[in-house]
Amino acid sequence: MERIPILKMGQFLLVTIQVDLYDRLALDLEADLINAVEKNAAKGVLIDISAVSIVDSFMGRILGNIANMSRLLDAQTVVVGIQPAVAITLVELGLPLTGVRTALNVERGMELLNSLITFDDTTEEWDDDTDNDH
């Protein structure tokens, strides 16, 4: 059975989707990823779909699900690398993925995740952080 690999990078989980998804594969990814978030106590999930040329309503829904489920487990999700044609198609389809955070590429996605998590930490307890630009 085909499976999409999930990489652990510090507090984050990184998934790069390199193959064209079909429904079963996407559902497996959803389950694997959520289990991995829980097991690793991950703070963030970064999904790179820059190699994906088709995102239909089902895969769009899976991405939304992953974001919502991770949020319940206290992890932020960022989807990066959406191709222009895919973005236009998703919007036309009526699926603007409103619950999902997005970034241009992996680098920007990492920055976004870092800022989201620092923001969380500083608001909670760690006041010794020098960064207070908000």
């Binding site: 990066v80 959406i82 222009p84 895919v86 973005a87 236009i88 998703l90 919007v91 036309e92 603007p96 993925l97 997005t102 970034a103 241009l104 590429n105 920007r108 996605g109 976004l112």
Partner: peptide, 12 residues
């Protein structure tokens, strides 16, 4: 509105 949504999907 579509243009705005699509731009947002690109992370901008």
């Amino acid at each position: 509105l579509k243009a705005v949504s699509a731009t947002r999907l690109m992370g901008a």
